[in-house]
Structure formats: C-alpha cells, structure tokens
C-alpha cells in the first residue's frame, strides 16, 4: 500500500511530549530522594539508571499506544520490545541530542546539560567509549539534518523487525516495516530533494545504533554483576530478559 500523506502525521501524533516526560522523570527522582534520608543520596550511576528506567516506561507506553503495534498480539509485542528496547533508548537519546543538545554537551531527559568532558573525566573506559561513539553519531545526524519525522520512522523500523526470532505474525511485522520504509523514503525525497541519498544515509545509521545499544547492554550488565544496577526496575527486567 502507498502510505497516505497523513500516515507519517499519524505516527508523529503518537509521539510522547518531551515536557511531560521531563516532569515524570523529575517527579520520580524527587520521590526517590524523598524516600531516602537527607544524607543518603543516590549516586550518579543510579540517577542515570532511574532516568533510563522512566524513559523506558515511556517508550513501552508509546509502543503500546501505537495503532500499528496494537494490531499485534501481546506475545509478539513482548518479543519485539525485548529485542529492541535498548535501540529505542539509544534512538531516543540521539534525537534528544540532535534537537536540544548544545555542542560539547549531553542534554538529559531532565532538561539538564552535562559537559561531555566532565563525563569523560570521571567515567571508565567503556562509558567514555560509549559517550564518544554516541556523540559522533549525533554529529552525523545533525549533518544529515535529521528531523522528527525521520526519527519516528527509524523508531518504527527498529521496533517492527521481522527478523526477531519467535515472532508469530511475521508477515504483519514485515508489512508495517515496508510501509514505514516507503514513508521514510518519500519523506526524505520530498523534504530534502537536494540530498539525493539521505534515505540511504539514515538507514546506514541503524547498524551503528544497534552496535551502540549492544555495548550499552553489556555495560549495564557488567554494572549489574557488580551490584550497581537498581533492582525492581523495568530496565533490570529487560536486561535479564536478554541475558537469561
């Protein structure tokens, strides 16, 4: 089917509101801190995990509210999300950096900006490499003038992945992926006619997103083994799902 002009518009309508997400994350962190004694502060890594956890809740809610996703049974929804949750987190982070991030800074979901140099000076080797790789990808996306329509298409392409094992309704997933792929191609051709291969350049970023997401999962899993990862969280459950 040829995507209708408002197909992309419908996808955009399902996007979370950044301000609402920011409020939700800040409220959750304040509640967490209020439950602790004044001198028992959350360490930086735990705060980052809480932010990621709340963002992940938001992404699951986003997927769940999508009409395309609703067409799948819950078992298929679970398998797809279990497979791509960390890619969705990375894409969400990348889009936030392209939209709001200042040069040399990382823009957090709480609205705060942290100098990349500050993180690098305190982080270990793995996290430093992750930050550097991600910032490089942000630069590439900025150079490509990555916009919100393209971002939402990439999220759907990552979510509706027919290659995920044990997907029952593979054909449905394939059809949605093809439809979104076509919408992305037409959008890049219409909105950036001068950039002949923007569509191809955007798709080339997906393996990089996948690679970074796998490194993020390994990093989080290592920290989990050290007992650093807050338990009873969606983040921990999704991590276990993949490593069990």
């Amino acid at each position: 089917t040829i995507p209708s002009p408002n197909f992309l518009h419908q996808l955009l309508e399902g996007e979370q509101d950044e301000g609402q997400l920011r409020t939700k994350v800040l409220t959750s962190l304040q509640k967490e801190q209020a439950n602790r004694g004044k001198h028992d502060c959350l360490n930086t890594f735990s705060i980052m995990c809480k932010m990621a956890d709340q963002t992940l809740f938001g992404l699951v809610e986003w997927a769940r509210n999508s009409n395309l996703f609703k067409e799948l049974k819950v078992d298929d929804q679970m398998v797809l999300l279990q497979s791509c949750w960390s890619e969705l987190l990375v894409l969400d982070h990348l889009c936030r950096q392209v939209t709001y991030g200042k040069e040399g800074c990382i823009y957090l979901v709480t609205g705060q900006q942290i100098e990349v140099s500050t993180i690098i000076s305190q982080a270990g080797m793995t996290l430093s490499s992750l930050v550097t790789r991600t910032q490089d990808l942000v630069s590439k996306l900025k150079a490509l003038q990555f916009d919100r329509q393209e971002f939402v298409c990439l999220k759907y392409l990552v979510l509706f992945n027919p290659d995920v094992k044990s997907v029952q309704n593979r054909r449905q997933v394939e059809q949605t992926q093809e439809r979104v792929n076509r919408a992305l191609m037409e959008h890049t051709q219409q909105s950036h006619p001068g950039h002949s291969d923007k569509f191809g350049q955007l798709l080339l970023r997906l393996p990089e997103v996948r690679s970074i997401s796998l490194q993020v999962e390994d990093y989080l899993y290592q920290r989990h083994l050290l007992g650093d990862l807050p338990c009873n969280s969606l983040l921990a459950e999704m991590l276990h799902g993949k490593h069990s």
Binding site: F57, V60, E61, R64, V74, Q77, M78, L81, Q82, L234, E237, M238, H240, G241, S244
Partner: peptide, 18 residues
C-alpha cells in the same frame, strides 16, 4: 523466561479502563 518479563507483560496487557 515468561516469569522474567512479568512487568513488561503487565504494562502491555493492563486494562486502561480500570
């Protein structure tokens, strides 16, 4: 595995009308 994904299943399966 199913037990591992209890929270995800709950989030996807919960009834909004409640």
């Amino acid at each position: 595995k199913k037990k591992d994904n209890a929270l995800l299943r709950y989030l996807l399966d919960k009834d909004d009308t409640v």
